[in-house]
Design a protein around this nucleic acid. Structure first.
Lengths: 374, 374
DNA sequence: CGCAGCATTTGGATCGATCTAAATTTTCGT
DNA sequence: ACGAAAATTTAGATCGATCCAAATGCTGCG
């Protein structure tokens, strides 16, 4: 019933129908340049299309012998699975969208790597979309992801993202895991570090070293992680009945704004004995500013960060900080998403990755003034 | 002719056929939770499916009036385009694969951002795949990308990638742009920085400052960028009839291996007057090692890098280096790929992004010992 | 008025897989 | 050896868009 169509049947790859009898040399991978289809594999293996389909999906229904025959045919013909076709019929694309508030944040490379790692083992593939901290672009990206029929989403929400923005973006209508940043009022699965506990831990550490005037630098953005951090910071202070030192926001979360913020603080003559920074990158900027005023971080003023980026251990002085393990967060987010895709009705889940305090020199606690690389 | 099928027709979303008469309230976005199809839009707008399809693809054939009617219907029903279906028929997925040798390299976040930026404006979406510098994983990723029917690829090849590996991976059979790393013998489009010219420029700069014993640290990997850099380095030396100082490889290209390599060099008592580093990150490690031996980078030993990462300007001493503009490379790679997709037969193209020398303190040329943030 | 020529719209086949229910083969107990 | 149950395979409809050729509507001109 093949190759005997109406007056149509002409396509770009010209003589498809003519070649139909399927007499291509047995071991020719991709003979004519035409894409090999499931149908071709079936013909070559002497079974039906349905059987080949079952083999592809590793169904236990097919006899081992048949499976071998089909697999041989696939290898021989150089068959490449067409997921678009499969997707159309089955509705599952084995595709996941990764929506990042800002790709270039150092954290996110690790996060992405963790996600990719897990997805890869399951044969999933991630679309990447950068919202660049912009609500409109985030929306756009979400729409495009939907068009491509992703099975689910990992979202690191942009600044100022409200729950309704995500709902509109269809995050509510499909499996969706928020990573690193919670979105108030949007009850999706969540995976993230325990910023609060980390801040509490590291502030406790400073207090234990005798610090009483502790400032906080960094973070003006309206995102959940800042609130969580401040809460942890204040919890520790409260426990010791201490008042917070100066709190200086930053315009953006990066090295140079940490630098600027610290200069501002020091210029006022208000020199705290310790500075807790929003994250490591801000801390580097802060240390730079201290340095410029002749203050040695770790001796004159303790400085601590958050994240434990690669650089932290190699900076001089090496930075005391706590881990937020973005790679682990990525892995867990991917795993959770896959679970959610498999069981859309399971109860909401939250995975909080515990912080680990990493004591180095910048807090003044370590006694080796210089040391090896990590 | 609808809703009157054989004894089949039962699907997961239960009563699809029953709801077919399409009497959903005019402005109800996503009434029953069933996905709205092109067919629904057509019915709602009172035109044929073909016409709606033309509207979707912005064809100039449809009358403005009709277009408006259709667009209204789409908005009213909350229609979401299904690219899998379109892809199956048309063969174009508006999807591109981004294969990275190692996501976590700082460069690659910028590269990815640049690519995403350009693709976004054209409605394309990128799959991301991390090869983690592993040939087998790279192969796997390439296969998966093919399965998903990408229209083209941007590849930053993993270490030791041979041309035949890419050919096998189908890069030869579809639009493919190599970025940042050339692959010998694989004549695809290429976009990358001019590592050679940059190295030449910066080495010249050191020679101009009077340096005669210039070492090179970093790079053992079998990738093209190292060869290009070494060539540039040697070109400059040759022009001034100088012999190369020590050349010390690194196990990996990162801060700590730069540190280790420099320690090794210094331990031998061979103290060069200047050190050219494989890149900025290695340079930071090298400066750390110098520091440890009481040598001040920029005063006792000049140190220069390559890339001009964000950190370079904020490090103390600020690093003299040259730009490799990964974001620009990403943008150009994406543009080139789109051009290639549109015209598969156009001649091969190479885009070389010129370097810019950034003179700061670590080479000893700048006279301000400290300075503001960039 | 008739008809060529253009602008617009349309029916129906099609892409390549999956799904369902039914057909076929095999296994096994008696 | 027979028939029922289990194991395996299959035909044909189907997913939701695009493509093509052909149909329709409209305009203007001789």
């Amino acid at each position: 019933m093949e190759g005997a169509k109406g007056p149509q049947g002409r396509r770009l790859p010209a003589a498809r129908d003519a070649a139909e009898p399927s007499d291509l040399p047995d071991e020719a991978p991709l003979a004519g340049g035409l894409r090999v289809r499931l149908k071709d594999v079936a013909a070559h293996a002497g079974v039906s299309r349905a059987t080949v389909s079952l083999v592809l999906r590793k169904s236990p229904l097919v006899k081992a012998e048949t499976r071998a025959k089909v697999e041989e045919a696939m290898a021989g013909l150089g068959y490449v699975y067409n997921r678009s076709a499969a997707n159309l019929r089955s509705g599952a694309s084995r595709t996941v969208g990764l929506v990042l508030c800002e790709i270039t944040t150092p954290n996110f490379a690790q996060l992405t790597a963790g996600i990719d790692e897990v997805l890869g083992t399951e044969g999933y593939m991630a679309f990447i979309g950068n919202a660049a901290e912009d609500a409109a672009r985030q929306r756009e990206v979400l729409v495009r992801m939907q068009e491509h029929g992703v099975d689910g989403l990992v979202v690191v929400a942009s600044e100022n993202t409200r729950a309704d923005a995500l709902e509109e973006g269809a995050c509510a209508r499909m499996p969706c895991v928020l990573a690193q940043r919670r979105v108030e009022g949007f009850p999706a699965d969540y995976v993230g570090p325990d910023y609060g506990a980390g801040m509490e831990l590291i502030t406790e550490h400073l207090i234990g070293l005798g610090h009483r005037n502790i400032a906080f630098i960094g973070g003006v953005r309206r995102i959940a992680p800042l609130a969580e951090r401040m809460a942890g910071f204040h919890r520790a202070l409260r426990r010791h009945k201490l008042k917070s030192g100066a709190v200086v926001p930053c315009a953006v979360i990066d090295r140079s704004s940490g630098y600027t913020a610290a200069r501002e603080l020091l210029a006022k003559g208000d020199i705290p004995s310790a500075i807790v920074c929003y994250n490591d990158v801000v801390a580097f900027g802060v240390m730079l500013a201290l340095d410029e005023r002749g203050l040695v971080p770790g001796r004159d003023v303790a400085v601590v960060g958050c994240d434990d980026v690669d650089e932290a251990g190699l900076h001089r002085p090496a930075l005391t900080t706590f881990t937020t393990d973005p790679r682990v967060v990525g892995r867990e987010a991917a795993r959770l998403l896959l679970r959610r895709i498999a069981h859309p009705d399971r109860p909401r889940e939250e995975i909080i990755v515990p912080p680990r305090l990493v004591i180095r020199q910048s807090c003044g606690a370590a006694n080796r003034p210089t040391g090896g690389a990590r």
